[in-house]
Amino acid sequence: MAENRLLDVVDVHQSYGEERVLEGISFEMDRQDVKVLVGPSGSGKSTMLRCINRLTDIDEGEIALDGESIYDMNQNDLRRQVGMVFQDFNLFAHLTALENVTLGLKRVRDMSEPDAVEKAARQLESVGLREQANSYPAELSGGQKQRVGIARALAMDPKLMLFDEPTSALDPELIGEVLEVMRDLAEEGMTMLVVTHEMGFARQAATDVLFLEDGELVEQGPPDQLFEAPEQDRTRDFLGRLTSLHGDQ
């Protein structure tokens, strides 16, 4: 196995009761890869992400992080290494922006209060929210909330970041600030797996685009190839519709 390999997803099947969601998905990610998952709603993109940090369990197949099966790892340890950003932000409503970030540092990484605060403050600054450190989620805009969400995940120093439609719940004028943070992160070399409809982000930042439909990985490849010369008609149809809707930003 390559030294640089971070994530292996091998023939993953998953179902909710009778409903089969993932039907044999395989792909891999090297360090510093930025892969974008696209596909129609219900195609299994979010489920795929949730399988990787075991928020959802798989029925068959194998997922390995750094060569180790995620089912051999301590669940909480796995999650510390895999950051997750949610569509609905899911900020802890009763904690300030700063406390949202320090909670994991104190309780999971056992950092002292001053160390946790210092690290959290730096993390918030890196997403441009130094001023908002003491604001509660209800006092923040959607874009600010999502940036806190990103800071909260990053503070745990994850090896891999999962983004589950991070801009889908945002007003159009707030999408840019979140994408900017994500582009910076990609440039710094963070390994990222992103579910999004933002094709502009995919073109600029992605190393690969993966097209999922009906629980199957239809096609994957570098964004230029997938957007300009897809091999499958299904891919062409979907990406064509998506680009006309969301355009390039």
Partner: peptide, 23 residues
């Protein structure tokens, strides 16, 4: 309480009990 709160707590590595206790 939005179930997403506990999911988010779990996603940063807090145990179930910690998520209930702190979030």
């Amino acid at each position: 309480i939005d179930p997403g709160q506990l999911v988010a707590a779990r996603s940063i590595g807090l145990s179930r009990v910690q998520g209930i206790r702190y979030v």
